[in-house]
Design a protein around this nucleic acid. Structure first.
Lengths: 195, 195
DNA sequence: GCGATTGTCTAGCAGTGCTAGAGTTTGGGC
DNA sequence: GCCCAAACTCTAGCACTGCTAGACAATCGC
């Protein structure tokens, strides 16, 4: 039997939890992950530090994980359309996919880091990998599958394409790439995958 | 006029500097960069913390930079041979390049992170980029250039190839990729670059 | 041997993630 | 309406981080 009071409290807890995740994400996107400290998050939600550990017993890493999971959800919906662009050539389909991916990474750099760079409490490449995390990769596979001339080893090609796009994002974000010529890179990559 | 004593001191300073860099690199490779703290490095060279700041006024980041520069030197020599493999097909040349790159990243993961992931005091993609840092990228360009059938936009193709290999390394190291199938990825990537 | 330069150390600041234990608010049974 | 236990939240503190000011000691050129 759940009393009304308990229901209200559960609702408030949920609300506060998402406040924490939201504050972490906003802070990370505006000032970088280094600025996301437990103390600053506590200030943001106007509670003391230990309250955060009530919501995230695994500590800071678990908060980063929560942001990453939000990101995976958004990435999946960002990539979904490119699976079936009607009346489009193979090159256009791949270009749409790559552009959508790069666009997401550019709009949410810190979230992207949480998803693909930072240590996180999600089992990747395992049976327990959450469906939503898998969804992004499956969107890439789906886009390749919908090509008129799909590649031979589809899963591996999807991995390599993913790696290539991620590499471009990572080197660009770490300042190892010049900022310009991004369109040329996209075009070159597209031409490598669909010839 | 440099006195013998001053010369000896200069030698000792240089020696100690390379002790610090060596300790940092070893510690990073064995326990990860998080374990590389000024205090632990000070212990390793048996001096107090402020001594390290005498050698590296910019602090920890400058030490990471020194390790990265060592890495760039080694990467350049690791990639050099693949530029001109005699009596080899285009596919073999690209495969040699990719394999050499992946091998370096696998042998020195922490050094690789210093080079391509961590914040570092080297101006990349700029006029002041050290020659040794450029050398790695030029090795990739050189390998592509030596192909019987070189790609059209060579510099951009080199960037994309670099990005692809880096992406594979990064996703693999961050646990986002399954460990297996690495050879298939290499083969697929090679086949994308040389038709 | 003396004096100034160089080198090195101790001690400390402000910050981090995280937690034990004290104190307060809350809610349900009477 | 009251009381007591359960749930909650806070203060204070630990051990660590990068980094630095200022006291002290060794060294070297004269």
């Amino acid at each position: 039997m759940t009393t009304p009071a308990a229901a209200r409290r559960a609702r408030q807890l949920k609300e506060r939890r998402s406040q924490i995740v939201g504050a972490a994400r906003t802070l990370a996107e505006t000032e970088g992950w280094d600025a996301v400290t437990i103390r600053r998050l506590a200030d943001a939600i106007e509670y003391s530090q230990p309250v955060l550990y009530g919501h995230f017993p695994q500590g800071r890493t678990e908060i980063v994980t929560a942001v990453a999971l939000e990101g995976f959800e958004e990435l999946a919906t960002a990539l979904a359309p490119s699976a079936d662009v009607p009346v489009a050539s193979d090159a256009e389909r791949v270009r749409a996919l790559v552009t959508a991916y790069l666009g997401f990474a550019e709009r949410h750099p810190a979230t992207y880091d949480a998803m693909f760079l930072l240590p996180v409490l999600v089992p990747f490449a395992s049976d327990e990998t959450p469906a939503i995390v898998r969804a992004g990769f499956e969107a890439i596979e789906g886009a390749l599958h919908s090509l008129d001339d799909p590649p031979a080893d589809l899963p591996t090609t999807a991995e390599v394409l993913w790696g290539a796009v991620h590499g471009i994002v990572a080197l660009r974000r770490a300042g190892r790439f010049p900022a310009a010529h991004q369109e040329e890179r996209v075009e070159t990559l597209v031409r490598l995958v669909v010839r």
